[in-house]
Amino acid sequence: MSAQTLINIKNVNRIYTDTKGNKVYALKNVSLEIRQGEFISFIGPSGCGKTTLLRLIAGLDQPQSGALYVQGERIEKTSHERGYIFQQPTLFPWKTVEENVAIGLKARGVYQEKKNEIAQYIKLIGLNGFEKSYPHEISGGMAQRVAIIRALINEPKILLLDEPLAALDAFKRMELQQMLTEVWSKTKTTMALVTHDVDEAISLSQRIAIMTARPGEISKVIDVNLGQERNRNDDDFITLRKEILKELHLVTVKPEPEYRI
């Protein structure tokens, strides 16, 4: 790909201290460039630092060493230019769908000039007719759609997705995967997804970064050259799935201890 670099992650280390005072590396010497307008997924064993990396990009956390940059500017705090979607929709239960979507616009002081866009975004995700509904009156999948456009309406340069579809049933999950593909195609927003689902990563991404078990490092970055329409039963899709599963097995299995006699 020839698109310019948007996010530059350089030699990032994130270390926590456990209850016994031991240092635990969540991320170790992680370096990666994410290109403008691409959809990239992070996949790896539980606890490998995927969410930690996403939080660092968002500015919700800071590394002990190394640095992260967006268009050459160091990330030191959160910004509306980096939208974050959590695993749960986190909607305000006392606000309607359109009121939830408007929250970011009001916080930024741009509601009056952009309020007409709310209807356009609600239409984009297929929730026409639910503008006045409250979160308890819509399904989990619909609520997650609202959370996604609540971030998108702020026109972020980057949308960070922390397993936003994990709690949904298989049918709703595939439906929202298709919606994300369509939204990405229309907006060309740079998207970074954390997932445990190999098929989801292949279906949505242009590249997939595979991370090792703790200490979290990027083991391999795989290009997904399958075109825009992706069929999970195609030979190329299945071949790529096997390659990723093999790599995941390698990064998950711990090496056998060495014995000296």
Rank of each mutant, 00 (worst) to 15 (best):
A58E: 03
L53R: 12
E73F: 04
K50T: 00
T52Y: 08
E73T: 06
L68H: 11
T51H: 07
G59Q: 03
E73P: 02
L56G: 02
Q71L: 08
E38R: 12
R74H: 05
I43H: 04
E73H: 07
R74P: 08
I40M: 15
A67D: 13
K77I: 00
V70Q: 14
E73V: 04
F39V: 14
Q64A: 04
S41D: 02
L60A: 00
Q62P: 02
F42S: 09
Q71F: 05
G72H: 11
L54S: 03
G49E: 10
K77D: 05
G66P: 15
S46L: 08
K50Q: 00
L60V: 01
G37C: 12
L68I: 15
E76N: 14
S41L: 05
G49T: 12
I75P: 09
G44D: 11
R55M: 03
G44R: 14
L54Y: 04
G37F: 13
S65K: 13
G44E: 11
R74A: 05
E38A: 10
V70R: 14
A58R: 06
L53I: 10
C48L: 09
K77P: 03
S65D: 12
R74T: 07
I57E: 01
T52F: 08
L68W: 09
A67T: 07
K50A: 00
G59D: 02
G44S: 13
Y69I: 07
F42C: 09
G59S: 03
G66I: 11
V70A: 08
R55D: 01
K77R: 12
F39N: 12
D61H: 07
F39K: 15
I57D: 00
Q64W: 04
L68P: 11
P45V: 14
L54M: 04
Y69M: 07
E76R: 15
F39Q: 13
G44Y: 13
V70I: 15
G66F: 07
A67C: 08
E76W: 10
P45N: 14
L60I: 03
I57N: 01
L56D: 01
G47C: 12
G66E: 10
C48W: 10
G72E: 08
D61G: 05
S46D: 06
P45E: 13
I43R: 04
S46A: 08
V70Y: 10
E73G: 03
I43P: 06
Q71W: 04
R55P: 03
G47D: 09
